[in-house]
């Protein structure tokens, strides 16, 4: 398959001025600011195939958003090579900007005081979308996202969930081949998150769009991305299948069970590592190889009423990935 995105030895440094609190410090920094270089990205390389959906995960300040901003042409890199669909992003060629889109969960492009349809219309002109294509795209997006009712309402009067879906319509009305999603589900309730994810999945599949997603919401990543890139302190610490990440770092399984009468948690600690212990519900972490043995021991020695063996939560695994490389 064609490579849609190529990133080689990408480095991004930021100059920041630092000063202590207080008036004299402020005055001092006016005359002679203390400059410090922050390495946001250190030697990052990866590539993405056309139509691939990858998740970019990592703790706050790891450099995820910086990567997206460089790929979308907003930031200039300090050095390194980047190519997206054959373009150098920061040259911001018109034809490049027409093939991409960036959706930021915490930034809105919709005109706040007007109905969303005005923004759509404006985008139609900005992206030079022929009338018929525009009508078709609009109908399709609006139906898929279930937002027919809201397009004519003043944006400020909409809920966050409704607004976010309309933001997606505005961002995808030109049918971009490459989409950058930065925390698209932030602040949304579970149902709204689900709607958004279903839609994004469909968009990726039907348009063979290349999508990079950053999210702190592991549900987004699990449901949408087969491949993940884990980044920490400006470096890639894992790049591969989500399954492999889990297999490599998930050394444990979780046994979740309820009991019919109170039990001694000390006795429980002999079987495995106790997670939650709130009568009548318990969670016990045991090593993968012995999970079945541990479960049967629980069943025989405690008044268990209900029991399941599950994979370790992915955010805990990711937490381990960070700590093992820090």
């Amino acid at each position: 398959m064609e490579r849609a995105i190529i990133v080689e030895r990408l480095v991004k440094n930021f100059e920041v001025t630092e000063r202590n609190a207080g008036f004299w410090e402020a005055l001092g920094s006016l005359i002679k600011p203390k400059k410090k270089t922050v390495e946001a990205l250190k030697d990052v390389s990866f590539s993405v195939s056309e139509g691939e959906f990858i998740g970019l995960i990592g703790p706050n300040g790891a450099g995820k958003t910086t990567i997206l901003k460089i790929l979308s042409g907003i930031l200039f890199p300090t050095h390194g090579f980047v190519q997206v669909m054959g373009y150098t992003p920061w040259e911001r060629k018109e034809s490049y900007l027409k093939t991409i889109s960036m959706v930021m969960g915490q930034k809105n492009q919709l005109w706040w005081d007007l109905p969303a349809t005005d923004t759509f219309e404006l985008n139609r002109r900005i992206y030079d979308i022929p009338d018929r294509t525009y009508q078709k795209n609009l109908r399709e997006l609006v139906n898929l996202l279930g937002v027919e009712k809201y397009v004519k309402r003043q944006v400020r009067r909409l809920s966050l969930g409704q607004r976010m879906r309309l933001e997606l319509v505005a961002a995808l009305i030109h049918k971009p081949k490459v989409v950058f999603l930065d925390e698209p589900t932030i602040g949304l309730d579970v149902i709204a998150q689900k709607k958004l994810r279903d839609f994004i999945k469909k968009y990726n599949r039907e348009h063979k769009a290349t999508i990079i997603l950053t999210s702190h919401n592991m549900d987004d990543v699990i449901e949408l991305c087969r491949r993940v890139i884990v980044i920490n302190e400006g470096e890639i610490v894992f790049d591969g299948d989500l399954k492999d990440l889990i297999a490599r770092h998930a050394k444990e399984k979780v046994i979740k069970f309820s009991v019919s009468s109170e039990i001694d948690t000390k006795k429980l600690a002999k079987v495995g590592r106790v997670g939650i212990a709130k009568y009548p519900y318990y969670e016990l972490y045991v090593s993968r190889s012995v999970s079945k043995v541990a479960a049967s021991e629980l069943l025989s020695s405690f008044p268990v009423s209900d029991l399941t063996i599950e994979e370790e939560p992915i955010n805990e695994i990711v937490g381990k990935v960070f700590s093992s490389n820090a």
Partner: peptide, 12 residues
Amino acid sequence: RGDLTNYLVKPI
């Protein structure tokens, strides 16, 4: 405020 970002990603 960084709102310029919205324009920079568009062909405008």
